[in-house]
């Protein structure tokens, strides 16, 4: 039987899909019966998803333009 402590220990690998089938099934069974662990798993997964969401951290146009003009200047200086 998996308890809450074991469950937490395997959280990272579970989220990455790196657990073997048997362990994953045991963990899944624990999650179905344990609200606390279920919340921790779901909200941790959501945490990672939010940070990976490209729409949340867009590159502003003016920042991009300044980058490209700085690079262009450096390149021209080097070529001169």
């Amino acid at each position: 039987m998996v308890n809450c402590k074991d469950c937490l220990k395997d959280l990272s690998e579970y989220l990455e899909g790196c657990l073997d089938d048997e362990l994953r099934r045991e963990l899944q069974a624990h999650l179905n019966g344990c609200h606390h662990c279920k919340v921790i798993f779901d909200t941790t997964r959501k945490t990672v998803e939010l940070y990976c969401d490209g729409r949340v951290f867009p590159l502003p146009d003016n920042v991009r333009l300044r980058l490209h003009s700085a690079l262009r200047r450096r390149w021209e200086k080097k070529r001169a």
Partner: peptide, 13 residues
């Protein structure tokens, strides 16, 4: 990574 994820989760909660 494990600690970072859990701590971020706590903050965002």
């Amino acid at each position: 990574l494990f600690r970072a994820r859990l701590r971020l989760r706590e903050e965002l909660s």
